[in-house]
């Protein structure tokens, strides 16, 4: 559905048109196609104006920082700025590859996101199938809506709740442990717990919300398929195996690919928001991901060049991963029921 014919009806347009005609009369050399292009562009001039604010915002706040990536090759300091800071070639990248904190951050990023995908990925699929099978009722809608709620709550608040519930002295979990005669556990102070706590909390936060996309896919299955299967005497398990799962398989595959593709990017399944708010100095060996390490080195330790180099490296790896997985997803789309 396109809106290709856009007659010029206002006075200004007519004037433009007339002057354009005059122009072409005095310059007969202009090729007909160029004239037509000009006419088409004129026709849409208001709509181009509509795009100006978006273009300016994106230009200033997204493209200008890309130029700033030059800092990765500089011994940048904020007084001299980008134009007078000395260039140091690949020194920042060499420092990066020698930096043990970088490898630790890389490991934590891959481990936390990888484990999250491994454990948390299939849960929303299963839950969506369960919800889809429920008879439509107020109960279904209310419980569904409730499970979406934590998605809309900030990680600052979620982390506050987590710290409260797991506090060694006053937190509910430890109070209950003590009441049943167990030892209390310093959950948020032992590095070894951090990955698991983060993953469980992230699953709790996003489980309900992540079902939506699968529910959309499920509601796209033609009901006749189920009706025919029931007539043929298929059990509900057989319906699940032969109709439901194959129908949503492409969506599931796509979501998995996106999740894996974004593992190292700023859209990683476990975000900087989550890490920053859940971490503390005592668990830093297991908690600090690439995002956090860039923030810490760049902003807190004022190593601009080093942190920008790390950001650039991360960005390139992420881009390759995303592009690779996107290509994969295009193939799946071609074969899938889309």
């Amino acid at each position: 559905m396109t809106r290709n014919s856009l007659p010029i009806s206002n006075a200004l347009g007519k004037r433009w048109l007339r002057s354009a005609q005059k122009d072409s009369a005095s310059f007969p050399g202009i090729s007909a196609t160029r004239q037509m292009l000009r006419k088409r562009i004129l026709r849409y001039r208001t709509l181009y104006l509509f795009l100006v604010p978006a273009i300016i915002v994106v230009l200033v706040f997204s493209y200008v920082p890309m130029i700033g990536l030059i800092m990765a090759f500089q011994e940048y300091d904020i007084v001299n700025g980008m134009f007078r800071s000395p260039f140091v070639g690949l020194a920042n990248f060499r420092a990066l590859l020698r930096d043990s904190g970088f490898y630790r951050a890389l490991r934590n990023t891959l481990a936390i996101n990888g484990l999250y995908i491994l454990i948390g990925f299939t849960l929303p699929v299963a839950l969506a199938i369960l919800i889809f099978g429920m008879r439509d009722s107020v109960f279904k809608r209310v419980t569904q809506t409730i499970t979406y709620l934590p998605h809309f709550v900030s990680w600052v608040a979620i982390a506050g709740i987590v710290y409260k519930l797991l506090d060694q002295h006053t937190g509910l979990v430890n109070v209950v442990l003590k009441a049943i005669g167990q030892q209390t556990v310093p959950f948020m102070r032992k590095p070894d717990y951090f990955w698991w706590i983060t993953i469980i909390v992230a699953i709790w936060k996003e489980l309900g919300w992540d079902t939506i996309i699968y529910l959309a896919a499920l509601s796209g299955i033609p009901p006749e398929q189920y009706e025919a299967a029931i007539v043929d005497g298929a059990s509900s398990f057989q319906q699940l195996i032969y109709i439901t799962l194959p129908s949503i398989a492409p969506t599931v595959a796509l979501m998995l690919i996106f999740a894996v593709g974004n593992m190292v990017s700023t859209n990683s399944p476990i975000s900087f928001d989550a890490i920053y708010n859940l971490r503390n100095a005592m668990v830093s060996t297991k908690s600090d991901t690439l995002d956090y390490y860039i923030y810490q080195q760049g902003i807190m330790k004022v190593r601009y060049g080093f942190a920008t180099a790390m950001g650039l490296f991360r960005g390139l790896v992420a881009l390759l991963l995303v592009m690779g997985t996107n290509a994969l997803s295009r193939r799946i789309r071609k074969f899938g029921a889309f």
């Binding site: 920082p65 890309m66 942190a307 960005g315 995303v322």
Partner: peptide, 13 residues
Amino acid sequence: MYISGGLLPYYVL
């Protein structure tokens, strides 16, 4: 959506 300058260039900007 796919490429960004990242944290530090944004901070400087």
